[in-house]
Amino acid sequence: MSLAPYVQIVARGKGRGRSMSFAEAVDAMAIILNGEAEPEALGAVLMVMRLREETAEEISGFTVGLRNHVKNILPKADLDWPSYAAGRTRGSPLFILAARLVSQAGYSVSMHGWNSHQQASASVRGALKWAAPTVRYSAIEDLCPEAFALLKLRDTFGLRSCINTVLRMWNPSRAPASVQGVFHPSYRGLQAEAAQIIDENDLVVIKGGGGEFERNPAKRVAIYGWMAGQFLDQSAPALTPEKRMLHDVNQPIDLGAVWHGKNQDPLAEASVTGTAAIALWSLNAASTLSDAQSMAEALWHRRHNPESLSV
């Protein structure tokens, strides 16, 4: 098979080109992942989609195409937590500690991802020693080498493509709830619309640091997505009046020191509990975000006695 018909769909001249339908996107992704796409055609499709911006039908179709392709599905988890941020300004992954709190509350967390163009201090994989055993991390290059190759095309194009968004939507553990971070605010609505098409009824998306699901507690946070099938479009106020930069690449935060209380950093702690609170809320562990925040703070204060934490 050839990807040429799909190039014709998206790349015809003004007034003639259009976006792919859901079904067309599913088929196009199958061609791509099966290695049947000509490199020139693949580049054309991905870059034209980026230029005119992807649609929810295309993202959801590509996501289903990826799910159809991958056979080694992970064990089912309670919460899907993708991690695909990139960039040299990204700081220490405080969200790892947030995921640990969520897991110590009795929920299994499935993380998957790959991170590029980062300082060593921002390494997610390097920080996994601070996660709990019930936080499972899966590397994208092991889960699906073909998808990893698509992600690496950023080095060829010099630009990200819709694959970054598709991988966030993937949910390889088929968890009933998912949390996602985006860098560009416009993608919050796109991912929420794509989730509706593929019946993802519990999805929370925020603008997070560097594109990770990680709350900056010094700022108001906008929350999009779905909860129990109801559309989310709301915001939560800042958790602290402190206005300093949360991440400074020249002064990385020591996650171990924060976890063990050797480094008293109220802003970092607020990021951990604030991120955990939104995740717990997405899991319906609390009826309101305010209650979830109280729950996360209680978990933080009792974090060194994990046997008493499970909900």
Score class of each variant (00 low, 15 high):
Y107A: 15
M20G: 01
A105G: 11
L66M: 14
W81D: 00
I253Q: 13
A298H: 11
T273R: 06
L33R: 00
R52N: 07
A195I: 06
G17D: 04
N305T: 11
L66K: 02
S308D: 12
G261Y: 04
H304P: 03
P133W: 09
P145W: 06
V48R: 10
H304W: 06
I223V: 15
V124S: 05
K71L: 07
T134N: 13
G15E: 04
Y187W: 05
D291M: 14
Q264S: 11
D78C: 08
I253V: 12
V258K: 09
W226S: 02
N305I: 15
A120G: 04
H301Y: 10
W130Y: 11
A41G: 13
T156N: 14
Q180K: 08
S173C: 06
G210I: 02
R67W: 04
E307Y: 03
E307P: 02
K207L: 11
P217C: 01
E193G: 06
Y187K: 02
S173P: 03
V48S: 04
G210V: 00
H112E: 04
K262S: 09
G43W: 12
D233Q: 13
E212H: 12
G61D: 04
W170M: 10
A194Q: 05
I96A: 01
E36M: 10
M29W: 07
P145Y: 05
S138N: 08
N305G: 02
A149V: 12
R188A: 05
G225P: 03
G225A: 11
V45T: 02
A298N: 10
A268R: 03
G35M: 03
I253A: 00
V311K: 09
F157I: 05
Y224F: 09
N68E: 09
L267M: 15
R67K: 10
T165G: 09
Q118A: 06
S83A: 15
H112A: 01
E242T: 08
E57P: 00
V102M: 14
S110L: 04
Y6Q: 07
C162L: 14
E38M: 15
Q234T: 15
R160H: 10
V109N: 00
I206M: 08
N263R: 14
Q104Y: 06
A192Y: 05
S308Y: 13
V205I: 15
E242H: 13
E269A: 02
L299S: 06
L159A: 14
A105I: 00
Y224S: 15
R100K: 15
K76M: 10
G61Y: 00
A37V: 01
A41E: 15
K219M: 09
L203T: 11
E146N: 06
Q196F: 08
M49P: 03
Q293F: 10
S186R: 13
P75G: 03
Y187L: 05
P237E: 07
P133S: 06
V258H: 12
A270P: 07
A11T: 04
